[in-house]
């Protein structure tokens, strides 16, 4: 393993070798993850003050068109059976304790997925008296799925991203307009 690592760092000529090495490593990793979760994922859906739009889209996942169960993903009725908490809503003051208790009842290893703009960052409600402003203020979130509400396909992509079956399609983008100089404009 050490010799392989040294090979990675040295030559820039044989990049194809490096690429195949990386691919092998990636396959190895995905196999490992597949073993941990047994190629199946059990979801507990938690509503923490959502408007129910996200719930409708999540419900649509189990209909014949999107058919979530072909990926081995199931909805379960208790957090004690779950691997993943699918949290919607901005975490209202009343449901804060319920969310915490659900999280504590879920066995390790567990993932938390925030679905919708509210769960990702508070959305329209932001931080106020009745809303805590997003799930990540309360729990560690593994995958964010933005959208108001996200399409069923978007939720599916988020779930498969959490299972490492798909890759992330979005990256941070920066733009800078500082090259124009510091001259003062006088019309």
């Amino acid at each position: 393993m050490d010799q392989e690592m040294i090979e990675f760092q040295k030559p820039e000529e044989n990049q194809e070798v490096l690429r195949t090495h990386l691919e092998e490593l990636g396959n190895h990793l995905s196999e490992k993850i597949g073993k941990i979760f047994g190629r199946s994922l059990h979801i507990r859906e938690v509503d923490s003050g959502s408007c129910n739009a996200c719930e409708w889209e999540i419900t649509a996942l189990s209909n014949p068109v999107y058919d979530l169960e072909r990926f081995g993903i199931y909805f379960v009725a208790s957090p004690r059976h779950a691997d993943v908490l699918l949290v919607t809503g901005p975490v209202s003051r009343n449901l804060y304790t319920a969310l915490l208790k659900t999280y504590e009842a879920t066995p390790e290893p567990k993932l938390v997925i925030a679905v919708g703009a509210c769960a990702c960052s508070g959305g329209l409600f932001q931080k106020g008296y009745a809303s805590l402003g997003g799930v990540d203020k309360v729990l560690p979130v593994d995958v964010y799925i933005p959208g108001c509400p996200p399409r069923p396909q978007a939720i599916l992509q988020g779930l498969l991203l959490a299972m490492d079956k798909l890759e992330q399609k979005i990256r941070k983008r920066n733009f800078s307009d500082l090259h124009e100089g510091d001259t003062c404009h006088r019309p």
Binding site: D136, R171, K172, R173
Partner: peptide, 23 residues
């Protein structure tokens, strides 16, 4: 619409603009 991300930082678009001063 496929915007799921592991990191909140990846969901950002940032831009910097040069300001002009009042004469």
């Amino acid at each position: 619409y496929e915007m799921a991300s592991r990191n909140k930082d990846d969901l950002l678009v940032t831009a910097k603009f040069q300001l002009s001063s009042c004469p």
